[in-house]
Design a protein around this nucleic acid. Sequence first.
DNA 1: GAGTTTGAAACT
DNA 2: CAGTTTCAAACTC
Length: 696
Amino acid sequence: MEEDNSKGVMGTPEKSKNNEIANPISKFEDSPVFNFINSLSPIKPVKSLPITQTINPLTFEYLQSVFTSPRVSSLKESRFLRRNQLSDPSKPEFSSNDHKENLDPMASNSDASNMPPSSEECSNLIVEFSKNLEYNRVNPNNPNSNDSYENKIDQNKQNTSCDWDDFISSPSNLLTFGSSDNTEPHKQSVDPATNYYTCIKNAIQNTLMVSGGRAGESHEPENLFTQPEEESEMMMESSKTTVDVNAGSSISNLCENMDYQHLSGLYRGMKRRSLVYNMAGPHEKHLADNSSSDSGNDSSQRVLPPGIGLHLNALASNPNDYNNVVNHDSLASRRLLIGPGLHANFHPPIFSGQELLRTNVTDYSLEREIENVDNGVVQVENEEINPSSPKKKRRRLEQAGEGEGSCKRCNCKKSKCLKLYCECFAAGVYCVEPCACIDCFNKPIHEDTVLATRKQIESRNPLAFAPKVIRGSGSSSEIRDDFSKTPASARHKRGCNCKKSGCLKKYCECYQGGVGCSINCRCEGCKNAFGRKDGSGVSSTDHEFEEDETNTSEKAEMNAIFPQITIRDNLDQTMDYSLHATPLTAVRQLAQPNKRPSFSSIPSSNFAASQEFEKSSFFQAPPKFGQFSETIEDYEMPEFLLEGSPNSGAKLSLSPNGKRVTPPKRRLERSSTGLRSSRKLILRSIPSFPSLTHNQ
DNA sequence: GAGTTTGAAACT
DNA sequence: CAGTTTCAAACTC
């Protein structure tokens, strides 16, 4: 099938183009020059970025310290070396249940370019970590826990540590590691590290749980990182460094990703996101690898937080955003790291994803993913509550597919999953096994085709992969003008064009996105429960919206449609407390930096992220989340975006008919503030630390 | 599960 | 840019 398809695809101009590009390269694959170039290429994007997010040596150092164990190095080496070999999804690398949850998704992917550490490796790591932790506990004050650990563990450590050092200290090496691989030069470079981190993280968590076990406790995270003071601190430091510096070093990102993955078992999502990453560029590609390989498993069973993949889409179009993305990613991961509590709700992934999305990309896809995630999450929980309900079952299935970025499923018959009709493609993720698509080209194997198609689509509409729903904080007067009446300040970027559904069904993208219709909508007979085009309906202010919300009947309807809403109610109280407590203004100032540029030029950006964040965070219940979401958004919205970017308003970016958006100009600067704010938010929002063991 | 409806995406 | 067609999700039965 694929071959045939590929041929067919190749026949198209796009594909031909891809081939042309690919073939020439292959000719020179073996060339030393080619290798050299390959090795360099990954770095370039970063340097070129406005905000240089070059790999932060400090971060590496931290990591190094933390992961000096011989195994690490060996693992690292082996991973790098075999990265190419990981393509075989059938490999039983993840046999253990514990890891399985977290890692399986990757394992199952057809591409499997980003295989996580094998179960054996993980086990080993766990053992090591456990030892290490024990050691640290015994010697909490041990200044050189790492060294001690090394000595304790084995003599090989020195060698390994050296390797690790080299690995860490030489970003170039890391990035170029896989350069030899013609097909996936970039991917390899990052994946190993990612895998490694994931493994480590899992190991740590497992160790903690096993040894002490307070997995379910609220303070678990802290303990986790504080107990093994050295390692924990180092990890934290690395995270901090990333955040503070705003440097989106690959390592930092990886770490965060790791956290994210570990906590949420989001690996699948990550894989699926690979598409986005790939699009974005070499770096993305690296990250993407992880995701790409797992398209097979992702699918699945778990509700993955979809978000991440989507974000990346933007990257593709805006390489410059990559850094931003990375940073966000870092934040996200960071958040996870700091506030594992989110895990309980699956939020962690969402946050990560959101952050990624926000970071840059334009993210329709992100948005969608978030939605999906939320939906998925919600559904899962709902299911738990009422597993028997057929409707819920259906929803669950649907949402699972939609929601998770990773779990999004399509049924494309004619589009080959290379058009925006395909939800997976639109979301920036590869199709996975659960998809019922025919002649699907949206797979890692057709990466070139996918990327080329994406480019084509983006050339037509730079924001094609941007989030459709924008959660405006309302900070921007401009935005407010348009959306002041909308609940939660959220709006569909382009607006809908509903004629018959009354904007009361999911046919309506506004409704589907849980946002009210706006002046941008050309809908007829709008009855959007989340806010009518004419301003009637949902309350005008966020606060009102949150407080008042829709009437009971609407609520019931919404709950039926968005099961997560119910949950949200509870969450609002538990999770939102912090936000509510915080004065919006203050929050906004802090948050502004990341707030999605929703409207802004940043193509990629942030709005999607914000939306995702909102939704995902809150399970996407549309209206309700509004406040929370908004708060978050505000919190993160970059000032420059709010202030004045010409394109800052969704409205601005839309063409008269609302269909075309001007390409965003990007300059994302990721202020440390933004990052910090995000982090703060997380900390606050995470009252307790749910057990890491459950994987959702 | 099949068929219909719907509106976005794509095309002209 | 508007109109039409294509497409796949959402929905209904």
